[in-house]
């Protein structure tokens, strides 16, 4: 198990390195005017040149990358080109907000998706068809549209939740829950369908296997068969989908955070990319890649934990 985890983490490091190189050079393609953005629209050419020199933008691109990579290997991700904030501070002050949304959404997705999938697989008929239609609808509606709908109905008309903003858990647990409820629901609705359909398909497959028929013939209660045997064997694919959903939700949070004005990584990523704030963008990419690697590894470990028949290799 430890060897497996070590291998996955090593592969993750490769992923981080590859993404860093890709991001750096992709942003270089569109970074022709960054120094002017920083110096101001009406700045003189001398002032723009000063900014370029200060940020090292006057050096060859490969040298710039080598400098950044060398510092990054020593844990120094640099400063924002635009406001001078340390990249680690900018990213880590926001990562917990985004990960909270993603984790909350995955948990809600897991609970609702697994329940709906299990119900659809065991009851079939009208309920099955209803779940499938709802799943498709949920996936078809764009996240931002769902977010706007939720805000108008539950924040503005019913006044149950705040329309925008974020409250820290430490400041008020109740207000915190209220501030993240709608964003989590907006993120979740689109992902429930995928998990529900995956669970449904896997369970129908397992329910048709010989050992299930054997268990039934031995007189075991249907509920016990479903929960102790079928669901456990069907859980593997569902966990994989959940892991994938987590990564997708991290991306989806970009738009939802912007719409709800939540200070997560999303708005930071959007503004930094549009301005060309390379150090911040690289910091976000690195941290996100690390999270994705860790989550994928955890999903694999969890699969083995839930179903010991799965062998890690």
């Amino acid at each position: 198990m430890l060897t497996f985890i070590a291998k996955r983490l090593l592969a993750g490091l490769g992923l981080v390195a590859a993404l860093s190189v890709l991001t750096f050079f992709l942003l270089q393609l569109g970074a022709s005017d960054t120094a002017r953005h920083i110096a101001g629209q009406t700045a003189t050419e001398e002032a723009v040149a000063q900014v370029e020199a200060r940020l090292g933008l006057d050096k060859p691109v490969l040298e710039q990358f080598a400098t950044w990579a060398g510092n990054a290997l020593h844990g120094d991700l640099g400063l924002s080109w635009f406001n001078g904030q340390p990249v680690t501070e900018a990213v880590f002050s926001r990562i917990s907000v985004t990960v909270s949304l993603a984790v909350g959404s995955v948990l809600l997705t897991a609970v609702i998706g697994i329940a709906l999938g299990a119900l659809a697989a065991t009851r079939r008929g009208g309920l099955d068809r209803t779940v499938q239609v709802m799943a498709v609808l949920g996936q078809a509606i764009p996240g931002f549209l769902m977010a706007l709908f939720l805000v108008i109905v539950f924040a503005i008309n019913l006044d149950w939740f705040p329309a925008t903003g974020y409250t820290k858990f430490a400041d008020s647990p109740t207000a915190w829950l209220q501030s993240i409820a709608l964003p989590i629901i907006a993120l979740t609705i689109g992902s429930i369908g995928g998990v529900a359909q995956q669970v449904r398909g896997s369970m129908i497959d397992v329910l048709g296997r010989d050992y299930v028929r054997t268990l039934r013939s031995r007189g075991l209660p249907a509920r016990r068969i479903v929960y102790r045997h079928v669901l456990r064997n069907a859980a593997g694919p569902a966990l994989s989908v959940l892991g994938l959903q987590f990564v997708i939700l991290l991306g989806g949070a970009v738009i939802v955070e912007q719409l709800f004005s939540i200070p997560g990584l999303g708005p930071l990523a959007l503004t930094s990319t549009s301005k060309g704030d390379l150090p911040i963008v690289l910091g976000i990419v690195i941290v996100t890649a690390i999270i994705v690697t860790v989550v994928n590894t955890l999903v694999d470990v969890a699969q083995a934990w839930v179903n010991p028949k799965v062998r890690l290799s």
Binding site: F92, A110, K168, F169, S179, Y227, R232, W305
Partner: peptide
């Protein structure tokens, strides 16, 4: 199933812990 529920519970705790550690702003809504 109990293991799945345990995993979800652990995830919830992790989410709460993450938020409790948040250095983010408190944009009062």
């Amino acid at each position: 199933m109990s293991r799945i529920l345990t995993a979800i519970a652990l995830g919830s705790a992790a989410a709460l812990a993450l938020t409790a550690c948040s250095g983010g702003s408190a944009a009062d809504p």
